[in-house]
């Protein structure tokens, strides 16, 4: 009997749970069944930065999930991680961080640290205030966000 070795999966969940829609990725992660999550290497990374993407084994599939300003609230988008800089540019969103997530991915890509198997899933958000919960549009799309995460991470 032959058994295939599963692809190692690393999920990088971005955002802050206490900053409104910014917590969407972390909340979606909690909707994923524990047994599924245990198959992944899960990290809550806050803000995505380039060094988080360097040094992984080449066969590892990385899935970055985040809330995206500039997309329609609640809309979900999937794309190869290498295309995140284009999404960021197209959405017109600017980061108040010195290096935004798109720049972080572009930097890691310049070092050859972003592969074709790496993926990004984002959900549009509109409110990022301290202490507030998810907006209704994001709350309503959270189950679908979690389902898409599982589908992408497990390559279904």
């Amino acid at each position: 009997m032959r058994t295939s070795i599963p692809t190692p999966v690393r999920v990088l969940a971005c955002g802050a749970i206490d900053r409104g829609d910014d917590g969407a990725a972390l909340r979606a992660l909690r909707l994923v069944p524990a047994a599924t999550r245990r198959r992944w290497h899960v990290e809550e990374v806050g803000q995505l930065s380039a060094e988080q993407l360097i040094g992984d084994p080449s066969d590892m599939r990385r899935v970055v999930i985040d809330c995206v300003a500039g997309l329609t609230p609640g809309a979900i988008t999937e794309l190869p991680l290498a295309e995140l800089p284009e999404l960021e540019a197209a959405s017109g969103a600017t980061s108040s961080h010195a290096l935004g997530p798109g720049q972080a991915v572009a930097l890691a890509a310049a070092l050859g640290a972003v592969g074709q198997r790496d993926w990004f899933i984002g959900i549009g958000g509109s409110s990022f205030g301290s202490g507030s919960g998810l907006t209704p549009a994001v709350e309503g799309a959270l189950d679908e966000f979690a389902r898409r995460l599982v589908a992408v991470a497990e390559e279904r």
């Binding site: 930065s49 380039a50 060094e51 988080q52 360097i54 040094g55 930097l107 890691a108 310049a110 070092l111």
Partner: peptide
């Protein structure tokens, strides 16, 4: 750049 990212990591 690689040196900077490695140190940051």
């Amino acid at each position: 750049v690689s040196r900077g990212l490695s140190m940051k990591k």
